[in-house]
Nucleic acid binder design. Sequence first.
DNA 1: CCCTTGCTTAACTAGATGGTTAATTAACTG
DNA 2: CAGTTAATTAACCATCTAGTTAAGCAAGGG
Lengths: 113, 113
Amino acid sequence: MSDQLSSTFAALADPTRRAILARLAEGEATVNELAEPFEMSLPAISKHLKVLERAGLISRGRNAQWRPCQLEAAPLAEAADWVEKYRRFWDASFDRLDTHLRSLQGKNIRGKD
Amino acid sequence: MSDQLSSTFAALADPTRRAILARLAEGEATVNELAEPFEMSLPAISKHLKVLERAGLISRGRNAQWRPCQLEAAPLAEAADWVEKYRRFWDASFDRLDTHLRSLQGKNIRGKD
DNA sequence: CCCTTGCTTAACTAGATGGTTAATTAACTG
DNA sequence: CAGTTAATTAACCATCTAGTTAAGCAAGGG
């Protein structure tokens, strides 16, 4: 799970962390500000932030005793690229072609590919 | 981790499972065909397929003793939507606006939002 | 210098994840 | 019916995850 894409997706696989990113999309925030909406201890938020940081999705500065967090969306570009490769499989405009290709594939199910 | 988006991202957070989806993008495949590229036991692949199935990313049919797997990309649409909301944060054309907004936000770091 | 505020680290727990081998089920094949 | 092939299930194990409470560490404010 050490590759970038895996840790990005893993970081996104938690509603708390996605909510934190959504909040940071509105601008910088401190840990306490980020924690405020959640019924969860501060250490728990701290851990979520560490996961986001190690995935490169946030960066943290220092301002006196505050540790302001900032969104770093770069890893999301790679994730978007990956997902987009599959767009034709869910996009309505490709349904007919897709069904056709699938039925061709079905006849060759035991073939090399 | 029970919501759709979380289980979709969780399923994608593993290179083996992403490779399986990539293979299925070329068409249906049986479990043994899917397992072939990996140095991993068949039960391990079976478990990965179960994760993908519970996330709704694949469906499985029956053809005699074979259980052909098929890509079901629908959940990826939701994932793509989520990620796309952040596009402006990594897209070069938004960098200048983004920097500007951040600097405004910075002055209000202790504010309500 | 002590106290409060902001946050992290430590230690622990319950449950999920990712893998293994061995046993089992299911369906075709001689 | 016996054997082979395809795949799953069971049982087990190590590691990771997401949370907890309690203790520790910086930095600013009386």
